[in-house]
Design a protein around this nucleic acid. Structure first.
Lengths: 334, 334
DNA sequence: TTGAAAGCGCTAACAA
DNA sequence: TTGTTAGCGCTTTCAA
């Protein structure tokens, strides 16, 4: 593998000049630049990114931490970030935290050891304390989907409170008052804010909030199925369900199907997150569609802006979700 | 940030000794080792991975190239690889190629520039030639889901021919003879092998193969919808569909729904790739379930084995898919 | 079992 | 506009 020295020697210039050519620095005679480029091409030279990173104390890589890339929201966000990074000739480290603070911490430390140029994360916790070492490191950070309270970092998320209220109103408007909510973990922004929206809608309509009808779970099919199955077997069973993400929705549908019940005849369903298949399960599921790709793209753009200018004012971008009405809520006759 | 020098000075040993401690080399007195560890802890020292990579000419990162992480197969594979990598204290670079050889080439070069320890890729092409530079680099490589012909590299895929034959037989066995196949790109292993299985099944049952009923597309909803819509409007319309992945399946369902037709009454459907939602679209979709997570895990394991022993014999692992019968094929009365 | 020292390939300050 | 040179932080001979 040819190094910068080989190119310099072969072209009869110094290594500094070769470095300047490949860093697109202006002060190089175009004659010299062309010669260097030609020689580099002949030798098959490519700059060693690791050496460059060591010297500059920053790599051309950004770290991405998500709970689980298999979640439709996070895979869209990841794809968007990768697209933006790619356009800037940068790569991304993919890290799944599984909502586990210890795993998250381990990954963050590794990312710092790798001298990443920046980090985008969906934090597993909302308090500032576990991220203190990260913030102190000075590495540019953007949080997505969730906030870190009291941390002056850029943040991109969707309007969870409003969205949950919208979804709940959709149920209430169709005559439902016994609504069970199955949400993601309570100590995350999304879980908490969606609860807030849910409760706000109920309160505005003077519907009593039954604490048994609100469950926070590890946001996947399995736990969702367990909770919903239990509800379906109980005497005091909700007649409508609010689900906190697409996997929770699927778990709920599974439980309903296994109980030989059907949506929307026996129970109404309104969920978070649109996916390509939501139109086709049953008679379609009414959902909140988050602008997932835009969230990722915006987060990446904010990160690059911060990398370019560390002192710029911190921004929090809240993107609008929209309600997509389909066939999972029938109107209840009073 | 404390460096190895700081630790050495503070502990009264040489940097070599500190290096040995953190590389878990045996020849260090345990007394000295403990002292170094303690001092390192006090100073908050963590080895700089970039410096280590430069010196060792190999990083603790493996590159992963997939067509699109949003594809359910590849996201599972990616997750599995990440799990294995994580257990070895390594990170992964995520790269989406979009089935574009130029993008793939660009990423591969970047990965080499980053001195990755290994690469796992689902190649966009089957010929050896575009990967010549990669093979020459000596970087450990494993291909997943697809082969590179004539390249002596480890490879993990599923039994595409058999699976396609199984799926086609399922349709034929229920009385269908006008079967349209919508498959992924022809120049990939999966596309080609699945066609082979499809044709073999037809041939064994003496059913004529209509070339108009075989389409290779960019494997996503949009193109699938276009093809299937066109078929549905034509006079010579298939009465059953074989779809090459979950997104193609979704596109087909979309086209069928828009044509006011239904599965399985008007048209039968059998597809590749099981997803959590396949049981719930319509009366469930009969599919081939590939062992996606296992494919990824196996690929990562082969890669680590090759990293440990460059000269070991090349392995090709073919994992079994299974047919999952659901409600998308009704039996045709003759 | 330990240390001294060379050097991985690059960037950037400084000098010319 | 170009070159010289000193490291970035680590690993790895080689010698002790």
């Amino acid at each position: 593998m040819a190094s910068i020295k080989d190119v310099a020697k072969q072209a009869g210039v110094s290594v500094a000049t070769v470095s300047r050519v490949f860093s697109n620095e202006p002060h190089v005679r175009s004659e010299v630049r062309n010669l260097v480029l030609q020689v580099a091409d002949e030798l098959g030279y490519r700059p060693n990114r690791i050496a460059s990173s060591l010297r500059k104390r920053s790599s051309k890589v950004i770290g991405l931490l998500v709970p689980d890339i298999r979640n439709s929201v996070f895979v869209d966000i990841a794809r968007a970030i990768e697209d933006v990074a790619n356009s800037q000739n940068m790569s991304i480290f993919l890290c799944n935290t599984d909502e586990d603070p210890a795993k998250e911490q381990m990954y963050l430390e590794t990312l710092l050891d790798e001298l990443v140029a920046g980090i985008i994360l969906a934090p597993t916790q909302e308090t500032r304390e576990p991220f203190e070492f990260l913030l102190k490191s000075g590495t540019p950070i953007v949080s997505v989907d969730r906030r870190i309270n009291g941390a002056a970092i850029d943040c991109v998320l969707s309007d969870n409170v409003q969205a949950a209220e919208l979804l709940t109103n959709q149920l209430i408007g169709n005559g439902y008052t016994h609504i069970g909510a199955v949400l993601g973990l309570e100590n995350s922004t999304t879980g908490r804010e969606r609860l807030k929206g849910f409760e706000r809608a109920l309160r505005k309509h003077n519907i009593e909030i039954d604490p048994d009808f609100v469950k926070f779970i590890h946001p996947d099919e399995a736990d969702s199925e367990v909770i919903v199955s239990r509800w379906l077997r109980s005497e005091n069973c909700p007649n409508a369900l609010l689900t906190g993400n697409s996997r929770i929705t699927l778990g709920a549908i599974n439980a309903i199907t296994q109980a030989k019940l059907s949506v929307p005849n026996d129970i109404a369903l309104a969920g978070f997150d649109d996916t390509p298949w939501m139109p086709f399960v049953g008679s379609g599921v009414t959902v909140i569609s988050q602008p997932t790709y835009d969230i990722g793209r915006t987060a990446a753009e904010l990160l690059f802006q911060r990398m370019a200018e560390a002192a710029r004012p911190v921004r929090e971008v809240v993107l609008k979700s929209k309600l997509i009405e389909r066939g999972s809520i029938r109107t209840l006759r009073p």
